[in-house]
Nucleic acid binder design. Structure first.
Length: 562
RNA sequence: GUCAUGGUAGCUCAACUGGAUAGAGCAUCCGCCUUCUAAGCGGAGGGUUGUGAGUUCAAGUCUCACUCGUGACACCA
């Protein structure tokens, strides 16, 4: 049922000065239920009708056919519509119970493929809190897009190429050992890398050695290649453990190295179109007409750069997936890079450059400073997850020591807290890392939402998990009203989240729904035998379904007990 | 310096894209477990929405200027 349309239909006969479309776009949702369920502001009519908005509102109310509403009242300059609660609740509960987890699905994407460049950690470096954002935002967007009928392709564009491998090989050959790397690959490789950057300050000649090693690597030198492969596979093993903890998988691990042999074509195209110019010994594409710095395609020593590989990757993805959109979930400090990328593609004559979207996000800092692997200032994601799970364990021992599957629940709650925390605010917000904040279980957090869901499930168990009819669950209790209305908003929320590429829209919705339900739960006894018992259980079941689905879209689990 | 992005309660953030008395959480204080999970519920205090102008019936939201923070600014990614 389209309630906005219903309100529009009621208004049309009373408002001959406006078209139905104009009326519909002006209808808004009041801030609180006290002001009704939908409202029509009369300000714009004041000019046309030469009357005070309050008067117009009053006149509309007198003329309007109220039969489809509980009541229609004029409140100041607004005409406020109150829905019939019984009919509305039967309608929305019926939809949720019939559709189950599919509630909110939409046929928008028409199966169009959408590669999502996400996570993309660097080989030989640990996954830090910084990578978490790209990983969980990308994963959530993939879930949301799937829900509205797109086909996302999760691509982990590993940082497995570039001059840092020259440095790493150099460092390994100076101080490293096979035994050390085997024992603890990531940490020891990182140790070499950090030491390289420390000593390199006093010994700049090390940079030349490193450059040389990378050059060898690009030319297929056996020793360099063997070391590179080894570093890569060891790192990937460690990464996969973390992805497993987050319950996130990828459709592709094609990293930068994969495009190593696909850059010549890019350079050829650029040359044939006369776009490549020499500047200070390097090969660049001039982008001054886009107000951008030139894109550096080849360094003066002939080696390629980040953007060269990204151009090859963009073209490869277009050919492989014939995408309708191509997303890059990458920090906002790379905004210029993606502007350049799109501009160069456009210059190359690829009109699909418009389908490429950079999904930027804010920086995580510590003590106000940017995290930096080189300087060793890192927050290890594994450690944060460990801390969160340990804290969840502690909470379970305090609050629910008889819980059956403690380990699984502690994982779901601890990791859920961390993931939810990363998704609940707008992408672009920076945030300073604070462990206590991240692993908080009270207030507007992941565990708060999980708890509301677990309470709902608990009631259903206590009720004997009865079969609940999808039809005719009329619930007229005003205490349930806010929860019912929130349930009805879920489909809109999903679409908005995808339009804005904002998982936080879903996270905030989940908090609102959990809050409304907790309030209802705290003030209303659900399990009492009366006429509306089944309708209340239908509400509880619906809340459980939608909370679980909202959390799933965020990549957070919803245990039935906690 | 140029561009980008932000400035809302002590702290962290909302505000349905221009609408009604700017709302939550944390922290502080008070109340609620012999009733479905207290990871909860109810209540109190806390605001010149960075500053100044402008557009509008209406501005946290749009325009301009200024200001502070952060980031990027060709041989890193």
């Amino acid at each position: 049922m389209d309630y906005k349309q219903q309100v529009t239909d009621a208004l049309v006969p009373t408002l001959t000065d406006l078209t139905p479309d104009e009326i519909k776009t002006k209808i808004e949702q009041p801030k609180t239920s006290k002001q009704g369920d939908l409202a029509f502001p009369t300000f714009t009519l004041a000019k046309i009708m030469h009357k005070a908005p309050q008067m117009i509102a009053g006149e509309i109310v007198e003329k309007i056919d109220q039969s489809n509403f509980e009541k229609v009242v004029a409140m100041g300059p607004y005409v406020n519509f109150f829905f019939k609660k019984a009919a509305f609740s039967a309608d929305i509960l019926g939809q949720v119970l019939t559709d189950g987890a599919d509630f909110g699905n939409a046929k928008i994407g028409e199966q169009g493929q959408v590669p999502i460049d996400m996570s993309s950690p660097n080989i030989a470096k640990p996954i830090s809190m910084g990578h978490l954002r790209s990983t969980v935002i990308g994963n959530s967007l993939a879930n949301i897009l799937t829900k509205i009928d797109y086909k996302p392709v999760k691509i982990n564009h590993l940082g497995d190429w570039g001059t840092q491998f020259g440095k790493l090989i150099t460092a390994y050959k100076m101080w490293g050992s096979e035994a050390e790397v085997k024992a603890d690959p990531i940490n020891n490789l990182l140790k070499y890398y950090v030491r390289f950057h420390k000593e390199d300050v006093d010994h700049p000649e090390m940079d030349d050695v490193a450059r040389d090693w990378f050059k060898k690597l690009e030319n297929g030198d056996e020793e360099a290649l063997a070391l590179w492969k080894w570093f890569r596979s060891e790192s990937l093993k460690a990464f996969k453990k973390i992805y497993e903890r987050l319950d996130i998988d990828f459709d592709s691990f094609k990293g930068e190295a994969f495009y190593n042999d696909k850059m010549d074509e890019i350079v050829d195209i650029l040359e044939s179109k006369g776009l490549l110019h020499e500047s200070q010994g390097a090969e660049v594409v001039d982008l001054s007409k886009y107000d951008l710095n030139p894109a550096l395609i080849k360094k003066s020593d002939g080696a390629t750069l980040y953007i060269t590989r990204d151009l090859a990757a963009a073209l490869y993805r277009k050919r492989t997936y014939d995408f309708v959109q191509s997303l890059y979930v990458v920090g906002n400090e790379q905004t210029n890079h993606f502007k350049q990328l799109k501009a160069v593609l456009k210059e190359m004559g690829f009109d699909w450059s418009d389908q490429i979207h950079h999904i930027p996000f804010g920086l995580i800092t510590q003590g106000g400073k940017k995290l930096s692997t080189r300087s060793g200032r890192v927050i290890l994601l594994d450690k944060v997850l460990d801390d969160a799970v340990a804290l969840a364990h502690k909470q379970i021992e305090e609050k629910n020591p008889d819980l059956a599957d403690k380990d699984a629940v502690a994982d779901a709650v601890g990791i859920g807290a961390v993931v939810f925390h990363d998704l609940k605010n707008e992408r672009m917000n920076n945030f300073d890392f604070n462990l206590e904040e991240v692993v908080r279980f009270e207030g507007e957090t992941g565990p708060y939402v999980q708890y509301a869901h677990a309470r709902a499930e608990s009631i259903l168990r206590k009720a004997g998990s009865p079969a609940i009819a999808a039809d005719g669950q009329a619930l007229s209790d005003p205490a349930a009203w806010d929860t019912l209305k929130l349930l009805s908003e879920f489909p809109t929320i999903v679409v908005r989240a995808s339009d804005e590429y904002e998982p936080s829209v879903v996270a905030k919705y989940a908090i609102h729904l959990a809050k409304a339900f907790n309030k209802y739960y705290g003030n209303t006894k659900i399990l009492v035998e009366d006429d509306e018992l089944h309708a209340r259980l239908a509400l509880v079941k619906s809340v459980s379904i939608v909370l679980k689905e909202a959390l799933r879209l965020l990549g957070v689990k919803a245990p039935d007990e906690m």
